[in-house]
Design a protein around this nucleic acid. Structure first.
Lengths: 300, 300
DNA sequence: TGTTATGATACTTTGCAGGTATCACGATAT
DNA sequence: ATATCGTGATACCTGCAAAGTATCATAACA
């Protein structure tokens, strides 16, 4: 039995007239008669009684009609579902972000996405950059939001630049440099630095490079475990630190923020996904994210 | 799209291996590959990603698999339903009985049938014989339970003899004939007869024939509208009547019943159905009814 | 480096859906 | 009565597409 048989059966059951049904189906009458007969033979039951004028459904036929209509409707829905899935309006999306680089644009996109595609099961979790890389490679998450670029290292991943968030100098309250409004790197030559967490080793490397370019080797002290910890240490007077601007919003810790005069921020926010991840849901999300980050008028 | 595509898709989705799926489907591998490709092309979406080792479902594929399984299960159920309907285990059955010939065997069969085929929507209603004939001819009811035979008249109907219920003479209380235990027809030559209802004209005709055969023309008085009315009239002393034995159970009216010595009862209970009614439910009912009326050991 | 698995492709065969012509039969009109 | 129309069924032909055979490209694996 094929769907063709069901489609033909419904047409005849609805018109109770083989010729008109054939017309509606855009076939000639004899093949339709034949298919009907085949269908009846296959299930070993009459679905119609052939009377003088037209056909009449049998008891079995009436039941079959009801179920057949449901089957055909269900196949139509299945096709629609696939279309939706294809357009990325359905499915699952797992994304991660590095809390140190919290970006209101990201949460805004997520909110929008939830609204536009309510059928998508969207989960996201906080995760440091280095862990995101691992999870992306294992295809455990669909999209990462990373504080640094790893392009050269990870050929299996696709990176897309988002922004260069500024970095700020953080001073203990009342620090002598706090009197200046803007501070240049060389002024920090003799300051102890609160080191970024070991996990953010690439950021640390970049900081070192900048300092060396400014002509000094920074003295790293009291390595911290996370952003909050870094600020606590600075607040306690253990040293100065250089942190992403997002920290100002994230932590309510009593420290002084000062702009740092740098030719270019060491930070590069990227989103990243696995090259072999062709999920249409991901594509939909990327589209929406790009629109948020580079609104239509702002391009080129 | 045909069910074939769905069956093939499920097999491949379950094995994630085209060759093994082909084996399971008893086809060779290339046609299966081709059908899969056709299916994907038709809905313009990839259902599988072809990787090094075997196939992997896409997001769309996973959704489609779920719905496809439901569709296939539903078609199976539809086929089963038709089989049940064919065996008369499902459907509708409308039957009527003439209350004047109420028969405990009929209600017993109905009770049994309800139990055995709970999925059958069984309705039955009281209806005088002549009306049943009309409704049978119009195919408004499936089965009638009639007090008289109409075989010669109604070629479109199929009759089946059930029984010859006895008729009883009904006398007003204290009537002179009530002293005899059994009464022969000629004794009634001079009695006024309470006539059966006009609708039961065939019964009336038969009664007349019997009386004429006994050598007298009965004097019919006070034509009644129904059985109850007949007995009321007899009870009021307006005359005598000849009624089916079921009246003794049906009506609690103060009259005297006496056996009537007749060579053969004028009553012939038949069941009847339309010749073109091939409803399997009807056939199931008939089978059960016959078993009740002529139990297995009693035949031949 | 051969062997064995994977799925895809090229080509042939064949089964069957669909087409045309026609029949049998009944209803209806003439 | 007879012709005409409408019903579905049947016989037969055609063509397409599903299924089969043989083979390839590729990757995993021994």
């Amino acid at each position: 039995m094929e769907l063709r048989h069901l489609r033909y059966f419904v047409a005849v059951a609805e018109t109770l007239n083989v010729r008109r049904a054939a017309e509606r189906l855009h076939v000639s009458q004899p093949p339709l008669s034949r298919q009907l007969r085949d269908l009846e033979e296959e299930m070993g039951a009459r679905l119609f009684v052939r009377t003088k004028q037209g056909m009449q459904l049998t008891e079995a036929g009436r039941f079959f009609l009801k179920e057949t209509r449901e089957i055909l409707a269900k196949t139509q829905r299945a096709l629609d579902t696939v279309q939706s899935a294809k357009r990325g309006e359905i499915g699952r999306l797992t994304l991660a972000y590095d809390g140190s680089f919290s970006d209101p644009r990201l949460t805004r996109v997520i909110r929008q996405f939830r609204q536009r595609f309510p059928a998508v099961d969207l989960t996201f979790s906080e995760m440091p950059t280095h862990q995101q890389i691992r999870e992306l490679l294992d295809q455990h998450i669909d999209l990462g939001y990373l504080g640094l670029r790893f392009t050269e290292l990870e050929k299996e991943l696709q990176f897309e630049f988002v922004s260069n968030p500024a970095v700020w100098l953080v001073l203990p309250p009342g620090h002598r440099l706090a009197r200046q409004r803007k501070i240049r790197l060389p002024s920090l030559a003799n300051e102890p630095f609160v080191a970024p967490p070991r996990t953010a080793f690439r950021y640390r490397e970049l900081l070192l490079q900048y300092c060396r370019a400014a002509g000094f080797e920074p003295r790293m002290v009291h390595e911290s475990n996370n952003g909050q910890c870094m600020l606590e240490m600075v607040s306690a007077g253990m040293g100065v630190a250089v942190v992403p601007e997002s920290f100002r919003r994230l932590f309510a810790i009593e420290v002084e923020y000062r702009p740092l005069a740098l030719t270019k921020s060491p930070l590069e926010i990227h989103i990243a996904w696995h090259r072999e991840n062709h999920s249409p849901v991901l594509r939909s999300f990327l589209e929406m994210f790009r629109e948020q980050v580079h609104p239509a008028g702002e391009r080129g």
